[in-house]
Design a binder for these strands. Sequence first.
DNA 1: CCCCGGAAGTTATACGTAAAACCTCGGACC
DNA 2: GGTCCGAGGTTTTACGTATAACTTCCGGGG
Lengths: 339, 339
Amino acid sequence: MQTPEPLGGTRPTSRDVARTAGVSQATVSLVLGDKWRGRVSERTAGSVREAARSLGYRPNLAARNLRLGRTRTALLVVPALTNEFFAHVYTGAAAAAAAHGFGVVLYPSPEGLGPARDPFASAQAALDGVLASSMATDALEAFRGTDLPLVMLDSDPAAPGAAAHVNLDVAEGMRRVTGHLLGLGHRRFLHLASAAPSWTFDVRAATLAHALSGAEVRTVRSPLNIADAWEAAGLALAAPGPRPTAVICDDDILAVGVCKAARRLGLRVPEDLSVTGFDDMALATAVEPELTTVRLPAEEFGRRGMEALLAVLAGEPPRPVSLPVELVPRGSSGPAPAS
Amino acid sequence: MQTPEPLGGTRPTSRDVARTAGVSQATVSLVLGDKWRGRVSERTAGSVREAARSLGYRPNLAARNLRLGRTRTALLVVPALTNEFFAHVYTGAAAAAAAHGFGVVLYPSPEGLGPARDPFASAQAALDGVLASSMATDALEAFRGTDLPLVMLDSDPAAPGAAAHVNLDVAEGMRRVTGHLLGLGHRRFLHLASAAPSWTFDVRAATLAHALSGAEVRTVRSPLNIADAWEAAGLALAAPGPRPTAVICDDDILAVGVCKAARRLGLRVPEDLSVTGFDDMALATAVEPELTTVRLPAEEFGRRGMEALLAVLAGEPPRPVSLPVELVPRGSSGPAPAS
DNA sequence: CCCCGGAAGTTATACGTAAAACCTCGGACC
DNA sequence: GGTCCGAGGTTTTACGTATAACTTCCGGGG
C-alpha cells in the first residue's frame, strides 16, 4: 500500500486523472460530475473513478466556481457568536446548507474588520447569497448597493430589499409571558429591554405595551450582558415609589442580571419578585431558581432561514415564515406578593 | 446621482473597467492590485480607479483564487460553537485572519455533514491552511492524507503532523486550583472530568493527580452539559463513605451542574462543599455563588493560533506557544468544613 | 448498398484574473 | 546620429473546470 499522493505541494488536476485513466479531461469531468449516463461506458467510468481515488484527486473549487459562476457559499450575518442564541442559529444554518452542498461563511465582526476594508473581500469568499439577522445593524449598512439575494431573519416583513423573511413569533411569546404574569396577579411591571435597536425588540415592546395597557409598566434598557443588566435593574428596583412585582426581560442574560440585583437588594425570587427571561438558552436552567422564559427554536430558525435562501437561489418564490415559540414556566415566576 | 450599476445580474469585470477607463485589462489589474508604481502614470491610475468605483467593480474572488493558487482562507475546526469557549476562539481567530486579509470558514459539524460526504467539499472553500482544536477528534480523522499546513490548538506538542502548536497552560491552571484548595484545608476531592477524550483533559488529570498525590481523589467523567454533570455529581456526592469536601471540575458547565446537585442534596456551597470550574465563561458569574475558576484567554488563544498558521503559510518556522492562565477565586470555594 | 442514428468518446472554448513578456516612443548620452 | 533606456503601457498566457460542439465507429433499416 504505497502512497501515490502528489509530492511537492502540487495537487493533481482532472487532467492528471485523465492521463492515468487513459481518457480525456472532459470524460473525467463528466464521470466525476455524475453526468455520464449514456455518454460514457460503465467500464471507462469505473477506471476514471479508480484513477481519481488512487491519485487522491480533489476538484479545485476555485476553478469550478469560476466556471460555474456560482460558489455554493452563503454569507451569514449575525452580531456575535458568543451569544449562544446566534451560535445555535449558525449551527442550524450550516446544517441546512451542508445538506444542500452549500457552505456558510460568517461575516467578520466589525472589530476584526480593518479600517475601511471591503466587507465582501474580507469574507474572502465569492458568495451566492446572504442570510442576515436584523440585529447586525451596522454590518447590514455595508450591503447597500448589492444585488445578492438576501433573506432577513427577524426583521420587518414589510421592509423592502429582502427576497424573503423568516421570523420568530416573538409577539406571541410576549403575550404568553404577560398572560402568565397577569394570571399570577401581577399589576406593576418592569420591562428590562435590550438597548440594541432591532425590529424584534420593537415588536416585543409594542406587544407588551398592548397586553399590559391596563397595568403599570416601566421600561429600562440595558446592553445584553449580566453586569450591565445587574446595574440597570438594581437602579430601577431601588427607585422610590411602589416597586414592580414582576420584571419582564428581553433576554435570559438580562433576567440573570435582574436576579442577581434582586438578591443584592434582599428580594427573594419568586416570592418577592417574579422574573422572566427570553430565549431559553443554557443559562436559563443554570441559575437558581431556574428561569421562566420563552423558548425560541434557535437552531430551526437558522435552518429555516437558510432553506429560504436556498429556495430563493433556486428560483422558487418563498412565502414568509413565522416560527412558533413556547412559554416555559419555571421557578423564577410566582404569585404576586400579597401587599 | 444615477446608479450606473450593472443591471441584469451580470457583475462588471476588470475588462469592463478597462473599457470605460480606456486602457487594457492588464493595466486595471496592475492599478487595482497596487503594483503600478513606475509602470502606470498617476493620471491613468486615477482614471482606472474612478472607472472601477463608478461601475461598482468587485474582483471575482473565484478567478483570483484560481490564478494565484491561494485563497486567503483558513479552516477552523472546533467541536461546537454553542460552547462559549469556542465561540471566543472563533472570534479571536477571525479577527487575526481579517487583519491579514484572510477569511475563516468553519468545519461543518458532523451532524450537518451528510453521509460519507467529503469534508473539504462540504466546506465549499478552497483552503490555504487548517487551524484545529484537538477536541474535535472525529473531525480530525477526515484530514488524514492531506498536505495542508496544520496548526493544532491544545494538543500534544510532541505529536507529529502539525506545523505548529498553540496551547493554554492548563497544567499551571490546575496547579493553581489544587494549591488554592489545599491551602483552604481540603484533603478529600472529587474530580469531575470531561468525558470527551482530548489531550488538554489528559493534562489536567495528570497534573491534578500529581499535585494531589498525598490526598484522597476520586474521579468521575461527564459530558459537558449541566444535566449530565448534575446527575454524575449527584451520584458521586451521595455515595457511601466519607464525602469529598471539594469538587474540581474540568469546565464551568460541569461546576454549575455540581452546584445544582449539591443544593439538591442539602449541601451549601462553599460552607459544606467547595466547587471550582475551568474556563471562566459568562456562566461562572451568572450563578450564585459565583464560581472560583481558571480564566482562559480564549479569544487570544484563537488569535495566536491563527497568527501561528499565518506565520506557517508565510514560511516562517514558528515556535510553540503556551499561553498563561489565571486563577480567579470567587465565592464557590472556601475553607474545608471542620469535621 | 447506403445512410442514419445512437453510443462513446474527444476537441475546443470560456469563465475573470494576474503577471510575464513584449512593444513603442521620446529623450539622454556618447 | 545612432543607440540605449526607462516610462508607460499592451498583448498574451495560464490557472482548472464544465460543457457545447464535434468526431468516430458500428449496427440496422430501407
